[in-house]
Write a protein that binds this DNA or RNA. Structure first.
Lengths: 332, 332
DNA sequence: TTGAAAGCGCTAACAC
DNA sequence: GTGTTAGCGCTTTCAA
């Protein structure tokens, strides 16, 4: 089996210099049609594909985009990654993945690791990072796009929604609907900083509205429908007479809804339920869950696009609020 | 802001040659403890991180692992990717992602693209690829791990389950339970070749058992709970007196279950339901769905491990059957 | 156990 | 519009 052909092979084959081949392959300007045709023919004939490692080494930018998110076994980040990929695909950039599992030491190690491939930019979830991580990102001299959350100071660009505003909107919604004995259910031990932020803003707003939170249950396990179902059963057993429950996400909330269905608790008559995220499958439930719709795919797309734009222009420190929608439906 | 330090800087700082630093960084054998200590101190002081582009260019292997899957907005591939990442993390390899959206032209383009970064190996879903894709993979001279499906001829190594056996097992299960008027519901227009394979094997087995399929509905849209719910309603309206339904996946099946709950159809008394995959959230439903449990995380882990092992050893053409479990539960 | 030389495949910078 | 030169940062020989 022959070696993979190089620029040099194409140059020989087509009788031009290597740099000319390089220019054709990169669609550089000022190339005669004739030369382009000749080179392209030779490249096709040899089955040439550029070596991006070599190109990246020389040009200091690899076309790889580091993507650092907590996890894939979760309904939100896969959609974000889908969005990122959709945009990167258009410019032959590719995402390199790193999963932190909500562990900031691991995040730091992953960032260091990913930077060693000289990525053209990095997209990461959240605004909270270890000092070491921040330092690396600031010194990396590439676009740094922080996604999901915009309540804070981005290293470079933040794209997402205000978790703070979203939580307050839900608090207002529940109080406006007349609920007075409101509880909250979370999971993961609140490792995802965004869910913690949401709960605090939610409680804060409830206080402002003179309707303080009545009960709170943060499950230690990873968030899931089953966990939501069990947590809902438990919080109702512990603290009687709740009239509404806000869940850290839709998975938990669907669990709550199932608990109510099975236990004959009337929703929202006896108990109102609200989730967060607006994942697809809640639409299929017998009752339409009230939730906050977040633009996950769009966050990915916008992040990738910002990264690409940033590579040429030179803006800094921008914050892009993609907004959320409170979908008030059957369960409140 | 200073430039990123290079091997040369570390070499100067510690008063040794570049190659010695290189050896220390890579944990090469035959390094004196003293030299190692000196180099490591200098590297730490300078905040040195290797440039993997340069290393990869020279050594012809980048430490990147190409991962080519259909989609992330789906319950199965994110778990596979999670598994891959878990293993790759241990050896500082990183996955570079490409999403095909079940389009083999796009897959070919993505494979070409990813190969241009000289990945250390490639993991891709399924055994069906375009001729161009196969040729590239055969010539790439790196480990090629095909996952999910093992019914066919792998390019190099296949790791997954027999879709054929799984479908037959479900057919047997339904017939053994006494169901005689069995229907099938799919989605995506059966673009995922695996679901097509499953249906064919399912029908084949039903014929062998003298219980041919009574009705079949393949929705054109992407698979989801809502689609399953609608499809279930429709197939029951079209073809009266079905007593069991096998769905291409759990999402669809849960949709079916919801339809039955809402329409007052007794499960499994009036209609039995079975899914495929064994995704987490079916455990939270009021009735436990009968399904085929597939080892998705394990497939990812095994694929990554095989890729790493293959990089040193030299086996070829192996097939690893990870097996499935038929979980017969409440709905059949 | 350590080092010197050469070069992986490409592109930036500068000619012409 | 095209070519020459140099070198990105590392690792693979090969030698000591």
């Amino acid at each position: 089996m022959s070696q993979r052909p190089t620029l040099r092979d194409v140059a020989r084959q087509s009788g031009v210099s290597e740099i000319s081949v390089s220019r054709v392959m990169r669609n550089a300007p000022n190339i005669s049609i004739k030369l382009r045709a000749r080179v392209e023919a030779a490249a096709r004939e040899l089955g040439y594909t550029p070596n991006r490692l070599a190109g990246g080494l020389k040009s200091q930018t690899s076309g790889l985009v580091a993507v650092v998110v907590p996890s894939m076994s979760n309904n939100v980040f896969p959609e974000v990654v889908d969005g990122i990929d959709r945009i990167l695909f258009l410019s032959s950039r590719r995402p390199v993945l790193g999963l932190t599992h909500y562990d900031s030491d691991r995040e730091e190690r992953i960032i260091r690791d990913l930077l060693s491939w000289s990525p053209s930019g990095i997209i990461l979830a959240g605004l909270e990072h270890s000092d070491g991580s921040r330092r690396m990102l600031e010194n990396a001299n590439i676009p740094v796009i922080e996604i999901m959350d915009i309540d804070g100071t981005p290293i470079d660009t933040a794209i997402g929604i205000s978790q703070h505003d979203a939580a307050r909107a839900m608090a207002d919604h529940l109080v406006d609907r007349g609920y007075r004995r409101i509880g909250y259910i979370g999971a993961w031990g609140e490792a995802p900083s965004r869910s913690l932020k949401r709960r605090l803003s939610f409680e804060e707003r409830l206080n402002e509205r003179d309707t303080p939170l009545v009960a709170r249950l943060i499950a230690p396990e990873a968030s899931s429908i089953s966990v939501g179902r069990a947590a809902c059963a438990q919080i109702l057993a512990d603290s009687a007479r709740l009239d509404a429950l806000f869940f850290a996400n839709d998975d938990l909330a669907v669990g709550g809804l199932l608990h109510c269905m099975v236990s004959g608790i009337e929703v929202p008559g006896q108990l109102a339920l609200a989730g967060f995220n607006g994942i697809d499958f809640i639409d299929a439930m017998p009752q339409q869950l009230t939730t906050i719709q977040t633009p996950r795919g769009k966050m990915g797309e916008a992040a990738a696009q910002a990264l690409i734009d940033r590579s040429s222009h030179e803006a800094r420190q921008s914050i892009v609020d993609l907004g959320f929608i409170l979908r008030a439906r059957d369960t409140t």
